[in-house]
Structures are given as structure tokens and as C-alpha cells.
């Protein structure tokens, strides 16, 4: 085999692409998992913030600054979570996976909807639900690799 390959190297050859999802193995559920975890931590932090006294200007400003930043980052990471889940859905999962997980479309649909719920709300319950949905999809992803 090695001798044949060495022999064939002597001749000019055209290229035949053997594409994987370019390049192989770039798909992973970790980004979506971290994004959901980030949302959860932010919601926890927001719920724990103490309201300052209205005449305490310094603390009022600090409160609004922290809350605003948390909202912005929560919004951003909920969007990342949605985007990463959709990438797996549209680019990674194939028809054969649907045979094994017939409700895969519904799972992704509900997960991405939950990302929007987490954007709209400040609720540990909703953020936990998103984490669970993400863990379930990540688990399916890992199962496909076995």
C-alpha cells in the first residue's frame, strides 16, 4: 500500500474533496452550555441585589449600573445560547438523528423559545429551565458521538 502510494505520487493528480463539516469536529455543545450557565448566574446576581435607599445617590447609581450591565450581558448570552443551539440544529444534526430522537425539532424549538423567556424575565426558575433544556440537547449531541 505504501509502495503504491509512493508510486502514485510520481504522477500529477487532481484534487478530490472529502469534506467533513469543515473542518471535522468543530461542533460542540459547550458554548451553549456556558451561555446558559452565564444567564443563570446573572439572574441569581440580579435577584440578590438589594434596593438602595432613594436618597443614597451613590448607591442608587451603583445599583442601576450593576443592574444595567447584568441585563445587557444576560441579553447577550441568551442570544449566544440561542445561536449555538441553532447551529447544532441546522448544521450538525442529520436525518438519522431524528430517527433516534423524533422530538429533536421540538426540543430545539422549545430551547430557543426559552432563551427568549430568559431575556424577558429575571427568574431563577426560567434560567434553570433553560439550563436543563441545554443539558438535554448537549446530552443528545454526546450520544450521537458514541
Amino acid at each position: 500500500m505504501k509502495a503504491l502510494q509512493s508510486f502514485l505520487q510520481l504522477f500529477p493528480a487532481s484534487i478530490a474533496q472529502a469534506h467533513c463539516d469543515v473542518p471535522c469536529g468543530v461542533y460542540e455543545p459547550d458554548s451553549m452550555t456556558w451561555a446558559a450557565e452565564t444567564c443563570f448566574k446573572l439572574v441569581e446576581k440580579m435577584e440578590a441585589l438589594e434596593l438602595p435607599a432613594q436618597d443614597d445617590k451613590h448607591h442608587v447609581l451603583e445599583f442601576h449600573n450593576t443592574m444595567s450591565r447584568s441585563v445587557v450581558i444576560k441579553e447577550e448570552f441568551a442570544q449566544i445560547c440561542k445561536k449555538e443551539a441553532l447551529i447544532l440544529w441546522t448544521d450538525y444534526f442529520k436525518a438519522e438523528h431524528l430517527d433516534r430522537w423524533p422530538d429533536l425539532h421540538d426540543k430545539v424549538w422549545n430551547l430557543t423559545k426559552q432563551c427568549s423567556v430568559v431575556k424577558r424575565s429575571v427568574s431563577v426558575v426560567e434560567a434553570t429551565k433553560l439550563k436543563e433544556m441545554v443539558a438535554e440537547l448537549a446530552n443528545i449531541f454526546h450520544e450521537t458521538k458514541k
Binding site: L8, P12, I15, Q17, A18, C20
Partner: peptide, 23 residues
């Protein structure tokens, strides 16, 4: 007959990137 060089990994483990085949 023609010679082609495989580029990519989608045919592993049958064909490897860089391997040449005769068609």
C-alpha cells in the same frame, strides 16, 4: 484512468487526506 488526491477527512478510515486513488 485518472489519479486523484483526497483532501479532507470525510472518507476516513477508508481514505485519508493526502492519499491518492486511481479511478
Amino acid at each position: 484512468l485518472a489519479i486523484y488526491q483526497v483532501k479532507g477527512h470525510s472518507m476516513e478510515p477508508t481514505l485519508y487526506s493526502g492519499q491518492r486513488v486511481v479511478i
